[in-house]
Design a protein around this nucleic acid. Structure first.
Lengths: 348, 348
DNA sequence: TTTATATTTGCAATCGGTTGCGTAAAAGTA
DNA sequence: TACTTTTACGCAACCGATTGCAAATATAAA
């Protein structure tokens, strides 16, 4: 068994009769090394099969060109797209991405934050677990000057970068769209208890839109799901369709919920959008595949990922520690599709 | 600006008047350290806010408790579930997961393989990029005794662990199911050029099933998509429905393709499954949401992820280098749903 | 030729744990 | 009490790259 020892800069140094420091500098195009030497070094490095040891470099410099991502799960379209955005941006700058899933558990989130720190990541991007109430496990990053970006599900009182959409405005827009379509009894399907403010904000937008248009709020039309799943959506939708009369519009705080509403409606003999108009949230792939297509609010996952990564990278490059931890708002748009097109407008 | 220096084992050693070696050993419950000392050390470590430095440990031991995952993309349901399975298994053993996306580009795959090696990952799990023909960039892992597992899209001639499903058998089962439903003109939608053998294997199963049941193969009924996307699926489906007569069954080598077939059929006035029965592949979430529900073949993503991770972990634990690089086959099942239920059997 | 300047390279400490080997202290045995 | 065994801990080298500072060499200016 050939115990193939790694080629190190020492090996290269020996072969070329140079100091390791010269090799190191040559490899990073340091200006104090002559072009000739650089070329020679790089060539022999290549020839000898040298692969830099990230650990050693990281240990010395106490930084790793690694971005840690701590999110609830990666199997949701929004989050996997988010990661994709992060990964692409990071990759471009030579950074590596470490991913950890909290599975919406506070305890796991705490552990993984520690693990990320232990790995000396250069920066952290996180979306909070549903369960999380206390966020002090993120303090360690701040106090050690590791840039921290919260994205999408962000804590309220934590002075660090945040990348979000304006959930309030989005909720307002969605509801207003239904109102514009002539709906007057608009239901809202939303997530139950939560600490992060995104569902609450959307609901706030919903309420405000009703208010602005003189539509009385009917608490019976607001249903809180225990989880954002298809099954829970069906349960909630059935509650809605048990009402008499049924609502004529539904704003679901997630496409998967909207899908369940549409399908439950169909199953129970109601027509979408004629009997009930539906709008979802996220613009998940499924929303444009399901029949009827589902109107929705865009949730620019990749862009949010890119924005988050860019903030990290920018902060890493410039030493000046921005004390201004700005909040980045990304745009959302209403996408009108069949499920809410009561007025029968032409769709693109 | 408080330059919060990290607490190291040196700090603990000094505080307790012990040697760093004792601290190090105490922290890992080494048997040569007394219970009292261990307890004392752990307590003060906790109190002082000590966080181990993974880099330092990894550098010394040349291993990092990190599993590198190199896949085409994470935004496909199958692959994100795969990662999820890997991550959960790894996490349980205290391993961290680094993820890199090749975006189906050979060049990126080569670079990222190098990056993974550079990070001294303990093991690698990879699914090949579509473009990849040559796999020599994976040699470095083998020659350095880093366990390597290929999963799903695996190379043919590379002696390492492989975790796959029996695509041939799955293709056969899917086709046979359609035959059992009474289909006699069965089309097949598959991916175009590819090096990994999964689509080819499925096609082989399809052909063999036809053969075994004395159904002549009609090349017009086999359509090669340029990409596994909804749009390409629609294009291909339309070709199918331009035929006269149209086929009475379709085996699509992916659920997203099956969805497009079902919807294109509906759009063109054909009934599913009465006029044409459809079966997909993967059991993606969408398959059981779309109306009609789509019959499919399970593709146990999470299990495959777990299996891959377990192989890595097992190989890491036992020093003996298994020279037998076994291939792990995971089971697939036919899930019969509405889209292929011509005989109108009761479905669960 | 000499001095000043620019260019190139080397020395050696450093990052923070890990571990083989050696020794001191405690416990056990004759 | 003397001797062996066990238990507990310390010393110091090591992993591989980085970097401040010093030194050597080359080039330019006087």
């Amino acid at each position: 068994m050939e115990e193939n020892k790694d080629v190190t800069i020492y090996d290269i140094a020996e072969k070329l009769n140079l100091a390791t420091s010269t090799i190191s500098r040559a490899l990073q195009d340091h200006h104090t090394i002559s072009k000739k030497t650089i070329k020679k070094v790089k060539e022999t490095a290549e020839k000898m099969g040298y692969v830099p040891n990230t650990l050693a470099a990281g240990l010395r410099g106490n930084k790793t060109k690694t971005i840690g991502v701590l999110i609830p799960t990666i199997t949701q379209p929004f989050l996997s797209s988010l990661i994709s955005g992060i990964e692409i941006a990071a990759q471009k700058s030579g950074y590596t991405v470490i991913i950890m899933q909290s599975h919406d558990s506070y305890k796991e989130e705490v552990n993984m934050a520690k693990a990320l720190y232990s790995n000396r990541v250069s920066g952290v991007i996180s979306s909070l677990a549903m369960e999380t109430r206390d966020t002090s496990h993120f303090d360690q990053f701040i106090s050690n000057n590791i840039p921290l970006v919260f994205v999408d599900r962000v804590p309220k009182n934590f002075n660090t970068f945040r990348v979000i959409i304006d959930n309030y405005a989005a909720g307002y827009k969605a509801t207003k769209h239904l109102i514009d379509q002539g709906c007057t009894r608009i239901a809202h399907l939303t997530a139950g208890s939560e600490f992060g403010n995104l569902y609450n904000e959307r609901k706030r937008g919903y309420l405000e839109a009703l208010n602005d248009h003189n539509i009385p709020v009917d608490e019976d039309l607001i249903i809180y799901l225990n989880a954002v799943t298809y099954e829970e959506g069906v349960k909630a939708s059935n509650k809605l369709f048990d009402l008499n009369p049924i609502p004529d519009g539904v704003f679901a705080s997630g496409d998967i919920i909207a899908v369940s509403a549409v399908q439950t409606a169909k199953k129970r003999g109601f027509k979408v959008p004629e009997d009930i108009a539906v709008i979802g949230f996220n613009n998940d792939p499924i929303s444009q595949i399901i029949d009827p297509n589902i109107s929705t609010i865009t949730h620019p996952a990749e862009k949010m990922g890119k924005a988050s990564a860019d903030i990290i990278l920018k902060n890493l490059k410039s030493d000046k520690k921005d004390d201004v931890k700005e909040i980045t708002f990304l745009n959302t748009e209403v996408i009108i599709r069949e499920s809410s097109n009561k007025l029968n407008n032409k769709l693109p």
